[in-house]
Design a protein around this nucleic acid. Structure first.
Lengths: 335, 335
DNA sequence: TTGTACGCGTTATCAA
DNA sequence: TTGATAACGCGTACAA
């Protein structure tokens, strides 16, 4: 059996209250008793029982991080960041992979609430009701990258319009006028914002927007490479591509390779996220998201919530990392 | 305030004990009272308090996973696997990144023990004392990939001798006789086992072992590429390379590329782990580790420990995944 | 089948 | 500066 405050009290010939005082430094304790208590704790190899503490405080020293899938290269850095901040404040972090499934989200929120966790960070959510049930139960919530508004939650996000604009502008500055955008299936706010940034860059350079240069990539589609071939088959094909993730960019490069287009000689490519960018050959130019900072900010907001009660929204800025997958547009032929 | 058993008991006009019974299905409760209680629970939007439950049971429904760095592509799959098994059994998973630092390991073990976690999985450990303190406190421990013996712990590992042998044999079968091994700094049991497997494959093919073909790669060394150039500068240079991780293989490929060696035309390369292998160009042939299975097995062992009390050791087998980075040895010149 | 009462290890509120 | 003691929410002998 683990030793308890009572055991120490007995050994040190004081009351449990006194032991608790020296443990938490909350009340004045005379140096002599303090010493006696510390000695007893040492002798009995005492570990405080966080559970009992939590029962009194009605909150455990545990944060919860919800994400879609830790196996997706975007998330590990978030998890690391949250843990770094949490641990420094004496909190542990529980991780839940929701797989973007509403039922799992609901079930895991339920588990988290039963544990009386000190707060929840959603890095990805679909189930608004689940979020709401956490708020109803009084658990602080921070949401990462969810542009929808849920009153009572803090939000941390990255400026997606700016990111897409940066990537597109870079290509335009290299002389490209036919820039394709390979996006996710439209519908999400993020995909919409990326498109918006892309259009802004075109407009600023007075390049007309051509819907034919818009493609939609879906990893679940067995015929997913068709959209890329379709771009290549255009009468006036793109000389550059902005992909909305490094994974898509790499998949695109592979398809291009198979069809004897060379990067960046024949086509320039910009990725997004800067997670896999350094691994590919050639190394990808990519729009870097401040992923780690996303996590630390979220954790800080969460741990702060008691003090400042108003919902807050923090927007971080992406940056462009130039590597080897982008180059000046080749002049094809003199006219 | 959250609603408690007492609130429900009051509303349903029964005792708290009865409410507890229907909650856990432990004693016979008449259908009528059962219904009344469930209705009351529903009406009051009751969340069981896992903390109070844990205090009684002296164990929380939380597992702990220690790993070096979730940002390293080996670990996310382990984390996912552990979580999948844990959640199915009603457990949550706390994650700690130790960064391979003994002090952090000790501090996090302390935190875990204070939380009275139901068990700890170490996927990476340096600090034997920390492990021991967990065992002393009666917390079940499973260790992944640690060949050292700590009595009282279960161990899950992958056969590293076999893995290195598979990779080397593949290259030998392709006609290569000069196969380099790019290993970590020697000293760890894993590095030793990989070397052993490499030697076994050479011996089986009656190829003499040449220490000049052994290299040590260290990502922290600013001059880390020198070891590769040294291999290339040998009088009789290797035509194939086995690297002990995909990351090293990719770094090697990049260096080769810079020095105008083409893969697999001039050199064949085999990676290890099969984590990044599919991302590179050309895609890497790699020794695949059953990473996910490593995690599920560890979690199952942990959740089982109460029943079977004897320490167990499970060894899983790696497999070879052939892709585009290996090819038959070119006949350089007819003699 | 149901109720009473105690214990789990702390913190916190009083008194002393 | 210390000590008794009542919570905290739940499980569970034991009694009814």
């Amino acid at each position: 059996m683990a030793t308890t405050l009572r055991d120490i009290a007995r050994l040190a010939k004081v009351s449990v209250a006194t032991v608790s005082y020296v443990l938490n430094g909350v009340a004045k304790v005379s140096p002599q008793t303090r010493e006696r208590v510390l000695a007893a704790m040492n002798q009995l190899n005492y570990y405080p029982n966080a559970i009992a503490k939590s029962l009194v405080k009605q909150r455990s020293h545990v944060l919860t991080l919800f994400l879609q899938d830790i196996t997706n290269p975007f998330f590990p850095a978030v998890a690391k960041a949250v843990e770094d901040v949490a641990v420094r404040a004496g909190y542990s972090v529980i991780l839940y992979n929701t797989g973007d499934q509403e039922e799992k989200e609901a079930a895991y929120v339920q588990m988290a609430l039963e544990q009386r966790v000190a707060g929840i960070i959603f890095c990805t959510v679909r189930n608004r009701a689940a979020v709401q049930s956490a708020l109803d139960q009084g658990t602080p919530v921070v949401i990462i990258e969810w542009p929808g508004n849920i009153p009572g939650t803090d939000v941390v996000q990255v400026d997606n319009v700016l990111g897409a604009r940066l990537g597109t502008e870079h290509l335009i500055q290299l002389g490209h006028r036919r820039v394709a955008l390979i996006n996710w299936v439209l519908g999400s706010v993020i995909a919409g914002d990326r498109l918006k940034g892309y259009k802004q860059a075109l407009a600023a350079a007075k390049i007309p927007f051509d819907p034919a240069l818009l493609a939609t990539y879906d990893f679940n589609d067995p015929d997913r490479d068709a959209v890329i071939l379709k771009l290549l088959a255009l009468p006036d094909p793109p000389t550059a591509v902005l992909a909305v993730s490094d994974a898509i960019a790499i998949a695109t490069m592979r398809t291009l390779h198979r069809h004897h287009r060379r990067v960046p000689r024949d086509l320039s490519i910009v990725g997004y996220d800067d997670t896999l960018a350094a691994l590919s050959t050639p190394q990808l130019t990519s729009v870097a998201q401040p992923i780690y900072q996303l996590g630390t900010t979220a954790a800080q907001l969460l741990l702060d919530q008691d003090r400042k009660r108003h919902p807050r929204r923090v927007t971080l800025e992406p940056t462009l990392v130039v590597r080897d997958s982008t180059a000046e547009r080749r002049q094809l032929r003199r006219q």
